[in-house]
Design a protein around this nucleic acid. Structure first.
Lengths: 195, 195
DNA sequence: GACTGAAAAGCACGATCGTGCTATACATGT
DNA sequence: ACATGTATAGCACGATCGTGCTTTTCAGTC
């Protein structure tokens, strides 16, 4: 990897952290330059525009997400175990952001009514994520662990709701019982749909 | 109400809409002045600082929330009916924002890691809201409609999760089935804890 | 209808925004 | 070690940011 690629990756990693704190829009080139110890123009030369930078941040974050959450879950045994691994993987992922929690969650509220390519990219990521949860749930159904009449998209919707709620309880309200709450809610959903 | 108070209220109403779209931080005095047809300085004279404006926006929004969601629900019959009225009231409230959905939800992701008086005010509001849901749930328990061993704070947590998920599904993903999904999830929670 | 206090606007400030152009420093292949 | 291209910094731009001071316009009282 050339020097340029290297620093570009480093910039994107730093930018992910910063954007999770202050938002993709709230983040400024100047702040990011200060955080990376570069000059504004030196940093900016790596990207065509701020919007392009935002999209690359999302792309970079998605790659990390696949590495850290999805791939590990896919090596767990099919069925409820894999679903649980996926869910716990997300919780760990969210906590790995030292501030601001999961960038995707933060970006969603920020962009939910700001049309444009950044929002489009984010919607694609979210749909992929929901679809993956539904697929893993469907595997649990075909393994006979969940009831055959399970609406896997409804389950995906409800599990995703829990990730949003957990971020809220843990980051915003700083509720010490947040992990307990989210796990109990997860168990309720599984129990209700268990064969 | 004096002229000053009147325009101040008008400014806050407009500001609520704008802040729901672009965030409490993303909203600028200049934008707000343009939306209200006032000059920047004429508008700014009503507030001590941008931070004070943000806090007043939250206060103003909370008053509307009490009028439009909480008070109507309290006039519904105690128990599950009241809980459902409260929940449906929130859904209608969220839809009443022509863009951006519920301001509180948007502000939460924005401020969850930005300490300060604005965040503090928002956390208070959120805790009040969760506590109200728990109280209304507890009434359904004491009416004998929900099981006596119901953890009302867990139910409040899960119902609140649904409001977050609904905003996401409806605003971000623009899923036409969002209302159906959220109602089914609500029913599942009630069914699980019904006596 | 004149007076007076409140409300709004005009104007200006230093800072920072996103974005370019130009020059310098560095890394890399020979 | 030198040449070359790439990576970074310097500098500048018009615009807009939050904020304050000063002036003008307006509303309400006698």
């Amino acid at each position: 990897m050339s020097k340029g690629q290297e620093t570009r990756e480093a910039i994107l990693t730093e930018a992910t952290t910063l954007a999770a704190k202050v938002g993709l829009t709230g983040m400024t080139i100047g702040q990011l330059a200060a955080h990376t110890g570069m000059s504004k123009s030196g940093l900016y030369a790596h990207f065509a525009s701020k919007e392009a930078l935002q999209i690359q941040i999302l792309r970079h974050t998605r790659e990390r997400f696949v590495d850290r959450v999805i791939r590990p879950a896919l090596s767990a045994p099919r069925g409820i175990a894999r679903l649980r691994t996926l869910f716990d993987g997300w919780l760990a992922w969210s906590e790995a952001f030292e501030d601001g929690g999961c960038l995707f969650v933060a970006a969603c509220s920020e962009l939910d009514d700001r049309p444009g390519p950044v929002r489009d990219a984010l919607v694609r990521d979210e749909l992929d994520w929901l679809e993956l949860i539904a697929t893993v749930t469907a595997a649990a159904v075909s393994e006979g662990q969940l009831r055959a009449d399970t609406d896997v998209h409804q389950v995906a919707y409800e599990l995703h709701a829990l990730t949003l709620a957990h971020q809220h309880a843990s980051r915003m309200l700083q509720d010490p019982r947040a992990p307990e709450r989210v796990h109990r809610a997860f168990d309720s959903i599984i129990a209700r749909t268990s064969a």
